[in-house]
Measured scan of single mutants.
Amino acid sequence: DNLVIALHSYEPSHDGDLGFEKGEQLRILEQSGEWWKAQSLTTGQEGFIPFNFVAKA
């Protein structure tokens, strides 16, 4: 599955970004460039995340 774990917390800075906490698990929905579309397994919310803040779970 496309699961990743957050290496750092991220505060959203643009509409459509997904904020998350360090250690949170996310499911990657789309990989494109440096911003990936993801869904939080904690909150169920979707949005874009910086790819370098996460690692394969």
Rank of each mutant, 00 (worst) to 15 (best):
I5E: 05
R27S: 03
E34L: 14
H8V: 13
S13V: 15
L29A: 01
Q25P: 10
D15R: 10
F20N: 00
L18P: 01
E34F: 15
E24T: 05
Q25F: 15
I28D: 01
I49K: 00
A38G: 05
A6G: 05
Y10M: 05
L26A: 00
G44D: 05
S13K: 15
S40N: 10
F20Y: 03
G19A: 11
L18D: 01
I28Q: 00
D17A: 13
Q25L: 15
A55K: 09
S32C: 15
Q31R: 13
G44S: 05
T43Q: 02
G16L: 08
P12T: 06
N2R: 09
V4Y: 15
G19W: 06
F53T: 05
E30F: 11
P12K: 08
A55S: 10
G44K: 07
Q31E: 11
E46C: 14
G23Q: 02
E34D: 12
G19E: 05
H14L: 08
F53M: 10
Q31A: 14
T42Q: 11
L7D: 01
G16E: 07
A6E: 01
I28V: 10
V54A: 03
F51Y: 13
L7R: 05
R27I: 12
K37V: 10
L3F: 11
E21Q: 14
G47R: 01
S9F: 07
L41K: 02
P12I: 06
D1F: 13
H8R: 15
T42A: 13
K37Q: 06
G19C: 07
E30H: 08
T42G: 06
H8D: 08
S9Q: 07
F20K: 00
F48D: 04
S13C: 15
D1A: 10
Q45I: 09
N2Y: 14
F20G: 00
A6S: 04
A57P: 12
L41Y: 05
L29W: 04
Q45S: 08
Q39W: 06
V54P: 01
L41F: 05
T43P: 00
W36A: 09
G47F: 06
W36F: 08
Q45Y: 09
I28M: 03
S9H: 09
K37M: 12
I5N: 03
K37F: 15
W35M: 12
I49Q: 01
L3E: 04
S9C: 09
P50E: 03
G19R: 12
Q31C: 15
